[in-house]
Design a protein around this nucleic acid. Structure first.
Lengths: 136, 136
DNA sequence: GGAATCCTACTACCACGGTAGGAGGCGTGT
DNA sequence: ACACGCCTCCTACCGTGGTAGTAGGATTCC
């Protein structure tokens, strides 16, 4: 019903994340990975989640001789963008500015990140000027 | 169970947002506001949501002669930070950098926002240097 | 004073997400 | 041949969130 397009619960996202972190993996591998991170889920729970992820189009599986191997079908970046966009709409009518400001202000970025951000901004700044968009 | 601390569904958030947008309001006022924005909810639905928001501590109400007036108890900024933090954890182990980069790269910021971001970064940069924390 | 209108309180219902158990198939070591 | 381990498939159960109806008190309007 909602326009979000992407509908994943927190636990499902956790599983998808495991796929991002370890790459293509079987149910057992995903489960083991989660156990290592202190997340204790039953084998079948992980299985259910992976199945649902596949049904929803966020993962694909193919049979490798012993068991099915699951692979993420959406990138972490894509998910990230999507979630951020939803958030921007939910809180600020779609504007991303406030979110960025919030993040930079309240979450400590590493010097590298700051530098990267810096150059990124300069590039955008330049483009805006060159493009002449809204030249008064 | 989860560590998020903040547990609000999309619809609940919508209602809370109405409180942010219009300020303290009665059930009916919130409903009207939503209707104007094209969101068609029954009176009692809005009422239920407001009640739940209050139960969860996100709003308070007090009786003004005719009806209860609800008021948000958490700010949009606080919610924003919270959601962003959750997202950072879900996707990047808590690091905010990638989110910021994503936002700046894929969501168009206004010149003002860019400028503000710029000065913000400079300020942080300066602080980092003064603090002497790993000067590149 | 009865009708219309507004409000609150309570109850309900369904979908979905989180979690998992059981049944049954297949390979492998003894 | 069988037990053990691993795999898949199906089913289930419960909590919560989204949405709303109904009952009944209060106010207002003729």
């Amino acid at each position: 019903m909602s326009e979000t397009g992407i509908e994943l619960g927190a636990a499902e996202l956790e599983i998808l994340r495991a796929l991002w972190d370890v790459g293509p993996a079987t149910v057992r591998q995903v489960m083991n990975h989660l156990h290592e991170r202190g997340r204790d889920l039953a084998y079948t729970t992980v299985q259910t989640m992976l199945t649902r992820l596949e049904q929803k189009g966020f993962a694909v599986s193919n049979k490798a001789d012993l068991a099915y191997v699951y692979r993420a079908r959406v990138s972490r970046e894509r998910m990230s963008r999507s979630r951020l966009r939803v958030l921007a709409h939910q809180l600020y009518d779609g504007s991303a500015g406030p979110l960025v400001l919030q993040l930079v202000r309240s979450e400590r970025l590493t010097p590298q990140e700051l530098a990267e951000l810096q150059t990124l901004i300069e590039r955008l700044d330049g483009k805006d000027r060159n493009t002449g968009r809204q030249r008064r």
